[in-house]
Simulated assay, not measured.
Amino acid sequence: MSSSDIFIGETIGTAVLILLGGGVCAAVTLKRSKALNAGWLAITFGWGFAVLTAAYIANPSGAHLNPAVTLGLAIDGATEWSDVPLYLGSQMLGAMIGATLVWVTYYGQFRAHMTDPEIVAATTGHEGIVDKSAAPAAGPVLGIFSTGPEVRNVVQNLATEIIATTVLVLAILTQGLTKGLAVSGTGVLMTALVVVGIGLSLGGPTGYAINPARDLGPRIVHALLPLPNKGGSDWGYAWIPVVGPLIGAALAAGIHKLAY
């Protein structure tokens, strides 16, 4: 597998993953969206279909789309360690491109949502006057870009991301995809269904990042985009959806080596 295959596949594939995954979050969240308040089922299936679509598109690179998956495969011996930096860099770039495309796609809805008097009042503390000292750790549309906990407990939040990512990476490692991630129709479909299952069963506490690039790249975009009244990017929490999935991936690879 060439460096160009990795770069093109992972960049485009991860961009599509975030465009469709972040897109369903935007559709459910933003005012003036036809899917407003469609709920958690829409989000979990939307992310599952996002994985399915992106993995087929990223076939030339092996469709990692996730630094945790890349780490798990490298530890397991299926991916060369020398290729890991290129995978990670391409995934981060793709995630940021995808998040930006979500903003472009829903530009009108973002404007309508972020200038709504109710949102302005909730974000600023008093309508029209920005009180930076009272700015929330997580802004009103941050959930479109990245994840956050329903209950802030560092140990629980970290454990949730570790457990969920262990399930994901172990499922991939035991599918016969580990020989350079030779993507088959069945394997890709199974991975997408695993992501749906994780979302339904384990996604409630933290929003199931299970992918450092999926969370960090869009969080950076949220911080940079010119969104009015956007609030904070919650950087105090940002390390958990990065560190947790990486630990989970290492655990999955260790379990795979020991048990299989």
Rank of each mutant, 00 (worst) to 15 (best):
I255M: 09
Y237T: 02
V243C: 06
A213Q: 01
A238V: 06
P205V: 10
L225K: 15
N229G: 11
G244D: 05
A252T: 03
P245S: 01
L202F: 15
L227N: 02
G244N: 10
N229V: 00
L225C: 15
G204N: 13
N229R: 07
G244R: 11
V243L: 12
A209G: 15
W239A: 14
G232P: 08
G244Y: 03
D234G: 04
I255V: 12
K230E: 06
A223G: 15
I255G: 13
G207R: 09
Y208R: 15
G248A: 03
R214C: 13
A252H: 05
I210C: 09
P205A: 15
Y208N: 07
G204K: 15
V221I: 10
A250M: 00
I255C: 14
P218L: 04
G232F: 00
S233W: 04
I210A: 08
G232I: 06
K230F: 03
P228S: 00
A249C: 10
Y208C: 15
L216V: 13
A252C: 08
L202R: 15
I210V: 14
W239G: 06
R219I: 09
I240W: 10
N229M: 06
R219G: 07
V242D: 09
W235A: 08
A209Y: 01
Y208V: 14
G236P: 02
A223T: 09
L246F: 09
P241F: 01
W235T: 06
A253Q: 07
G217N: 14
L202V: 10
P245R: 02
G231N: 13
P212R: 10
P226D: 13
G236S: 10
L202N: 14
